[in-house]
């Protein structure tokens, strides 16, 4: 029997967790490139669930389809009975038909300076987005957020002050099963070598502290143009510059993000009450 050439398919899935988009047209450009690069999960910042669903109704492309995580969840719930089956089901559905699906997730990144502001924001906006992330320089606020069930990630840029991430915060994040979101954009966008080396030096400090506490973290590029999208393998290669071995970041570029999205989708769209998103009054 003749051997099929290059039959071994690359089954790795990729995700971009932080897309800052200013116009609706940009979403199509990002999705086109994402489909070419087999990036299956795109989290768009500042677009709520209803805006995202409106966009999905208008969008029409024969080469690939754009879905919301809820659509996939509705398809899978007939056959999946526990959480691990949902994760496998999502992964299989995304790989199926040569990666011709792009899943759009709505997300909100907010930066507040006081706990009261944060509380009022969360109570009114939590159910409008599938992911909620916090970016702040206030250490007290970050520690409060690390314990709050409604916040999914704490975002940290490589050029941020490294002292905001201390051992206590890492420990709290780990206890509450939360991820730090490390934004790598300053490595790609730096115009001068000085900025690049500062980002690298500062980033190494932050990542080393998080890693020494075994706190989970995820990596994102936060691209400013569609051509800055990167596959999970490429992101893992970039993180090697920060001193993390390639094999250690296996789940930090897709799996952790997918798990968080599925958890939130189940909480948002199921009829049961859940901790964090839909709670009894």
């Amino acid at each position: 029997m003749q051997k099929t050439k290059f039959s071994k398919k690359n089954n790795s899935l990729s995700c971009e967790n932080y897309l800052a988009i200013y116009q609706d047209e940009d979403i199509v450009n990002y999705c086109d490139i994402a489909n070419k690069m087999h990036i299956s999960l795109l989290a768009i910042d500042n677009v709520n669930i209803s805006q995202r669903n409106k966009f999905l109704e208008v969008f029409n492309n024969k080469e690939y389809s754009i879905l919301s995580p809820q659509m996939l969840y509705e398809e899978l719930r007939k056959n999946c009975f526990d959480f691990s089956q949902f994760i496998d089901g999502f992964k299989k559905a995304l790989i199926h038909d040569n990666y011709n699906k792009v899943v759009l997730v709505s997300r909100k990144t907010f930066s507040k300076e006081s706990i009261e502001e944060l509380k009022s924001f969360l109570s009114s906006n939590r159910s409008d987005y599938e992911l909620i992330c916090l970016k702040s320089k206030n250490q007290k606020l970050l520690k409060w957020a690390a314990k709050d069930r409604r916040i999914d990630y704490i975002s940290i840029d490589l050029l941020d002050d490294s002292s905001i991430v201390d051992n206590a915060l890492c420990s709290l994040m780990k206890q509450n099963d939360k991820n730090f979101e490390i934004i790598l954009s300053s490595l790609l966008n730096s115009n001068t070598e000085k900025v690049f080396s500062a980002a690298l030096r500062n980033g190494k400090k932050i990542v080393e502290r998080i890693d020494s506490n075994n706190t989970p973290m995820i990596f994102t590029i936060k691209p400013s143009t569609p051509c800055q999208l990167r596959t999970s393998s490429q992101i893992r290669h970039i993180t090697q510059l920060l001193g993390i071995p390639y094999n250690k970041t296996k789940s930090s570029t897709f799996h952790n993000q997918l798990v968080r999205v599925i958890k939130n989708v189940i909480k948002l769209h199921d009829t049961h009450l859940f901790e964090g998103i839909k709670e009894g009054s």
Partner: peptide, 12 residues
């Protein structure tokens, strides 16, 4: 090889 792949990822 790993270094070259990192460079590929960094070129924008």
């Amino acid at each position: 090889l790993s270094s070259l792949l990192t460079i590929f990822a960094l070129i924008t």
